[in-house]
Design a binder for these strands. Structure first.
Lengths: 117, 117
DNA sequence: TTACTAATAAAGCAATCACTTAATTAAGGA
DNA sequence: TCCTTAATTAAGTGATTGCTTTATTAGTAA
């Protein structure tokens, strides 16, 4: 990932299970770096680097009190990502040939499921 | 991106402007490799490699007739990506502290806009 | 001051990424 | 057959990724 446009930064940030897990945690409420790192099987610097990626994508903010950093998720970049995906899902659904593909796939899937059962 | 789980593959595929442009084109209807490559400022092998990434993520399929490959977008992986994003946007919106952050951000934004006008 | 804790910075490493050019495969038309 | 077109494979390159260990910064407390 060399691209540095906002949408690329967001999708790249989401393209890692560890970072998605961190965001999952933060979507349920703010937490310190230590709290977020606890369930992760990696060193503290590794977590810090993941946080930097999330921050650069605008998905989290850090606020310092004493020697702790409180991490908060920011939803706006997620809105942008969602908007892109939804737009193209919608476009695809409008296409007649895509619809035909879809029906064929459903028929095939149905036949496959029957064959498997 | 070392991760190879389905969701990581999809997000990683979307984390590149060229690949998003290819998907944009295909969301409006199937096309050959040549048609998709035409507006892109890079060599044919480079396009071919991007297509491989999209295919590995399940976002496109290729069907051959003669020396042409017709590319079709597949929406299902996009559904998965959308589901993940929507789930976490929803979670975030439910949090009281996130809501407070949101209100504070809106107030700050409002004040900033006033200062700028 | 000294020690302890929370977190980041620095440096190094193997693997992957996004390209390139050159070579190859596969099909159609003269 | 020979030539052209469409596309992929192979090989090479510099930049980036996701970790590591070691060192450093910053704050609290004895």
């Amino acid at each position: 990932m060399t691209a540095s446009d906002p949408l690329s930064l967001v999708f790249a940030a989401l393209a890692d299970p560890t970072r998605r897990e961190i965001l999952s945690r933060l979507s349920r409420g703010s937490a310190t770096v230590g709290e977020v790192a606890a369930p992760l099987a990696m060193s503290a610097p590794a977590v810090s680097q993941h946080l930097k990626v999330l921050e650069r994508a605008g998905l989290i903010t850090r606020t310092a009190h004493a020697q702790w950093r409180t991490l908060s998720m920011q939803a706006e970049p997620l809105d942008q990502a969602s908007a892109w995906v939804e737009k193209h899902r919608r476009e695809w659904n409008l296409r007649l040939d895509a619809l035909e593909d879809h029906l064929r796939t459903m028929r095939t899937t149905h036949r496959t499921q029957e064959a498997e059962s």
